[in-house]
């Protein structure tokens, strides 16, 4: 190996350095989306790696590049990291080509994540659309694993078609639990066979009992859907600070340098990706 010639400052810690992690499981969910489970090669690094729901990691597919991906595992279940990857770009396509045992690069965790300490004692209303289910799955498991810390937990989840429902198996199991409400809808049920609701995610608000005074709502939906979901919460007297949103932006560095994720004076990678609706009201272009 070459000797690094850089001074101490450079040799100490390079925040851009991807650390090697092994793909231990690749479970296809849908035609284009799979669950990837990763473990750091350096066991000690794996043990040191702590995070909170809503944070993301930068994942490198060697030879293709790096992409920011939300963690969908929960820190309450240590030892591995899980990401839910949809094949939409070059890096995610490369990740889908990998087989278990392959190595990827991981650095992070980045972003603020959900303010779980502040949410303690509150009812949680999680609203997921499409791939937005991934970060909310992290929060969902976090809340269920620390069930006593939270009040009522409700998930509203909208997918395009029955085939697009992510985590379908584990969500169906949760439907049988009495300490969590799981409501899933699909936009279209053209092929039939979906026993549940049909309609966009906002239809799940019909008849939904929510005590807005003691609830934190968490929205994670595609960019175009915020303007449909937020009014449903405002109608129910949610205040700007009670509505949390996890945003998607282009990122290169994940650490506030490259500029790509800037929204107003905020860096989505450092100050987000979780913002309040009050933030969004004050930063044009945020949603």
């Amino acid at each position: 190996m070459r000797e690094a010639t850089a001074p101490a400052a450079a040799a100490a810690e390079n925040p851009y350095q991807p650390h090697r992690a092994k793909l231990v499981k690749l479970e296809p969910f849908t035609a284009d989306t799979a669950l990837l489970r990763l473990e750091f090669l350096d066991r000690e690094r794996g043990e040191r790696f702590t995070y909170r729901p809503g944070q993301f990691i930068q994942v490198s597919a060697l030879g293709t590049g790096e992409a920011p991906i939300s963690l969908c595992s929960s820190p309450t279940r240590p030892g591995y990291l899980e990401i839910c990857v949809r094949r939409v770009g070059r890096v995610t396509q490369a990740l889908h080509r990998l087989s278990p045992g392959a190595l990827v690069g991981v650095r992070g965790p980045y972003g603020n994540g959900f303010p779980v300490e502040k949410m303690r004692g509150k009812d949680l209303l999680l609203i997921a659309g499409g791939l937005g289910m991934a970060p909310l799955r992290s929060l969902l498991w976090y809340a269920l694993d620390r069930r006593g810390d939270f009040g009522r937990v409700t998930l509203l989840y909208g997918a395009r078609t029955p085939r697009d429902v992510l985590f379908r198996g584990e969500l169906q199991e949760l439907e049988n639990r009495s300490d969590v409400r799981i409501l899933i809808t699909v936009d279209r049920n053209e092929e039939g066979g979906w026993p549940g609701r049909v309609g966009v995610v906002t239809t799940l608000f019909e008849g939904l009992e929510v005590d807005s005074a003691r609830t934190v709502a968490v929205i994670c939906v595609p960019p175009v859907a915020f303007k449909f979901v937020v009014p449903k919460l405002l109608e129910r007297n949610f205040k700007g600070e009670q509505i949390l949103m996890s945003l998607e932006r282009k990122m290169q560095c994940g650490i506030g340098k490259c500029g790509n994720c800037n929204v107003g004076s905020k860096h989505t990678c450092l100050d987000g990706p979780v913002f309040t609706y009050w933030d969004a009201m004050n930063v044009p272009g945020m949603i």
Binding site: Q17, P18, L62
Partner: peptide, 19 residues
């Protein structure tokens, strides 16, 4: 240049010239 990579060694910081 930030890194050189190889399947065998992963990403290695490119540090030449920095000093």
């Amino acid at each position: 240049l930030l890194f050189r990579f190889s399947v065998a060694e992963g990403y290695q910081m490119a540090a030449e010239g920095l000093a």
